[in-house]
Computed example of a mutant assay.
Amino acid sequence: MLSPKAAETVRATLPAVGGAIGEITPLFYDKLFAAHPELLRDLFNRGNQANGTQRQALAGSIAAFATALVEHPDVRPDAMLARIAHKHASLGVTAAQYRVVHTHLFAAIVEVLGDAVTPEVAAAWDEVYWLMANALIAIEKRLYEEAGAADGNSWREYRVRSRQTETAEVAAFAVQPADGGPVPAFRPGQYVSVQVELADGARQIRQYSLVGGDEGALRFAVKRVDGEPAGEVSRHLHTEVREGDLLRISAPFGDVQLDSAERPVVLVSAGIGCTPMIGMLADLAARGSERRVIAVHGDRDPASHAFRAELEQYTGKLAAGESHVWYEQPADDRPAERTGFVDLAALDLPTDATAYLCGPLPFLRAARAQLVEAGLNPADIHYEVFGPDLWLGA
């Protein structure tokens, strides 16, 4: 909770800081990477830096956290903090790095806002920063301890046991620890980070959802992303990694996890967003769950639909499982009402269900709106988005 004096100052200056955050965050990253080029090379996603999405996500999270502090001083935005903390833990972010960020972020704030940053204003926003940073540090510490990596280093070498082509753009990798030890426990819906060394020596990291685990192995899927430089890791995995190769992989993390309740569950995905849903379905089927499970997926066409067979296989094993698929360009004789974009309004959805969403941001927004319109509790609608979360604070 902010001190009363700081809360008053933050409330008064939030419009100015929020209005300038689009200038502050690019300058911050420029300063950070000039002082610590290894962070851009080996920690931050270079593709997201190049297209600006990481900067937008940082700006949104800072503004959302500050707004929450002044508008709801007795309620900490734990959902937002958990999402950021899980991503940080998957990257191996340490407490010491928050001081590095503080140095360059506040230098950028002062440079952009100039004389408006009085000692009183600086002290108030310093309080905001450390409230957020210390909350994240505490959550990340707990996550590291749960992963058996108290020092923040959860990385292990895994050997690729098998590689399977799912579609022309998607490959699934099954990996097992190279040290012969057991695979880590994970919750359906979680992801792992994969770090690869690229041709220029950079060791870039990306997150990939787990689609299940079997016989001492973890399975994750990678969609090849064409373009420069956003798909540099996915292209490397597709073109360079084969059975027997070694990969550096983190412990599983991710705040979007299948709950253990017995009430109905609705899984809604589009494109490669099917991967965490397949992981959830695999778990439900393996446990012989009697929950009502409604799996909904949208894709470009049948040939682009990764894990299409698994979707039918897992829902078919469930006592109360059903699947609904929409294709924009159907290659078979599909009914007109299942052609085009996913339409949740066409389904009879239980209002007491827990829902999980994954796909492009416009799809997530449309799907959430339809679920709320159908009567689901907004608090029971959870989403996973690949890349920087531009929905934070929305």
Rank of each mutant, 00 (worst) to 15 (best):
H382S: 07
A285T: 05
D179P: 12
R156F: 07
G152L: 02
D74S: 09
E127L: 07
P177Q: 12
E228R: 13
I62M: 15
R76T: 09
Q97E: 04
S323L: 04
N134R: 15
A369M: 03
S3P: 06
L258M: 11
Y129S: 11
L318T: 04
R235N: 12
R203I: 02
H104F: 15
Q207W: 00
Y383N: 07
P37S: 15
A147P: 01
F363K: 07
T9F: 10
P177D: 11
L267I: 04
R187T: 15
H88L: 01
F44N: 08
T339W: 04
L81C: 08
L371Y: 04
A149L: 04
L281N: 03
S209I: 04
I139P: 06
G148D: 02
P184A: 12
I278D: 08
I272M: 05
G181V: 13
A147M: 01
E232R: 13
E166F: 10
K5S: 12
Y327I: 01
L69T: 13
E120D: 14
A96D: 05
G316I: 03
G231P: 08
T53I: 02
V110N: 10
V194H: 00
I294K: 06
T9P: 08
Y383P: 02
A285G: 03
R365F: 03
I272S: 14
R248S: 09
P252C: 00
I137R: 09
S289N: 06
A286E: 10
A7L: 06
Q207G: 00
S304G: 04
R142D: 15
W125H: 11
L91G: 00
F44Q: 06
V100W: 02
A107K: 07
A138W: 01
L131S: 09
L237N: 05
P252R: 00
G213Q: 05
G152E: 03
T351C: 10
R368L: 03
Q56G: 14
W130H: 03
E240K: 15
E215S: 13
I137S: 08
Y129E: 06
H36V: 12
R55E: 15
L246A: 12
I109Y: 12
D115K: 05
A66H: 02
I294P: 06
T9Q: 05
Y144H: 10
L105E: 07
G47M: 08
T53S: 14
A116E: 14
L210P: 01
D115N: 09
Y356T: 07
G271S: 06
N153G: 05
H297T: 12
S90C: 00
Q207V: 00
A66V: 08
Y191K: 00
P77S: 04
F65H: 09
E145L: 12
P378W: 01
E71F: 04
L69H: 14
Q54H: 14
A366V: 11
G273F: 13
I278E: 09
G271R: 09
H86Y: 00
W326Y: 10
Y356I: 10
V117K: 04
R161H: 15
